Amino acid sequence: MSQNPQTPSNPNFLGALAGLIGILGIFLYFTGWIYRWSYFGYFELEIISLNFPLESFLIVPIQVFFGNFITTIKALFAIIITPFLIKFTLWLLSPNSSNITFLKKLHRWIIFQKLRQIIATLFNQIFKDLIIVSWLLIVLFWLAQSQGYQDARRDALNSSSTLSVVAVVSSNEKLALGRQLDDIFADPSLKGYRIIGDQELFDKIRGRELNDTTNPNQPIVWRLLLQTDSWVYIFPALPPNSKSNQRPPVLAISTADGRIQFLILSRPKMN
């Protein structure tokens, strides 16, 4: 008599490892995307327009988890508290929680009853996986968003910025802003240029194109935010006494086809 081939009892290790790496990659990409969305959103830049390589988002989470000592402590705290949040949520939506006195009123709500009915119709494991993934995404979003904002605020302030000081040189007829190299006190001619929008944005930057640190309370230091194939983003760093809701103006300078054009992306607040 021929024997039926036995089904291996051990799980497919390589398949499980590949699945784990895939899930880890999704979480890392999500964390990197949220971090950059928060960081560049501080400077009024849309991340979808910056064309970052997809693989670069997998490296960014290193800054989220290990950027500095406080960041690492915050990440460890999130790792510790997340399992408790998951268990509490599963218990809260389970029938056992209805025996608790202060939760009886909650279980009487129509919305909560409908939610439990929906949960009862789903597979138990699918529901647990959904709760776990939801909490992981919430925690990763919080870590990445807060770290992105903190790093952007740090780089916006001249006293703590880690961004490079920049100097952009262009011919006179290609850029309306800037100083003449042979006469820095002469304003460039605006003849032939047109403007759409708020002229105050342009006027507040004109005359402040050169770095000047003679006044430590109001220094002017231009820094490079980002450089891509066809765009250069620069901004004057904020003084140390700037308000928490103050944002620097960002100049997006197009260098495509050798033609330089610029766009002011955010309103300067340099009072």
Rank of each mutant, 00 (worst) to 15 (best):
G178I: 00
G178Q: 02
G178D: 02
R179Q: 04
Q180H: 15
L181F: 07
D182N: 08
D182S: 11
D183R: 06
I184W: 01
I184M: 02
F185L: 05
F185V: 09
F185N: 08
D187Q: 15
D187F: 14
D187K: 15
D187A: 15
P188M: 10
L190I: 11
G192R: 09
Y193C: 04
R194E: 12
R194L: 14
G197Y: 02
Q199Y: 14
Q199W: 14
E200R: 10
E200P: 03
L201P: 11
D203W: 04
K204N: 13
K204F: 13
I205Y: 07
G207Y: 01
R208C: 05
R208E: 03
R208V: 08
N211E: 03
D212H: 04
D212T: 03
D212L: 09
T214W: 12
T214M: 13
N215F: 10
P216D: 03
Q218T: 11
P219S: 01
P219R: 10
I220P: 04
V221F: 01
L224E: 09
L224T: 04
Q227A: 12
Q227T: 04
T228R: 05
T228H: 00
V232W: 10
Y233I: 08
I234T: 08
I234M: 06
F235H: 02
F235N: 06
A237Q: 03
A237T: 05
L238W: 04
P240N: 14
P240Q: 10
N241H: 09
S242K: 00
S242Q: 11
S242T: 01
S242Y: 01
K243F: 09
S244E: 15
N245E: 15
R247A: 05
P249I: 02
P249T: 10
V250A: 06
L251D: 06
L251R: 01
A252C: 02
A252Q: 00
I253M: 07
S254D: 14
S254W: 05
T255A: 07
A256D: 08
D257N: 15
D257I: 09
D257V: 12
D257Q: 13
D257T: 12
R259H: 12
R259M: 12
I260R: 09
F262A: 09
F262H: 14
L263C: 13
L263N: 15
I264D: 00
R267M: 00
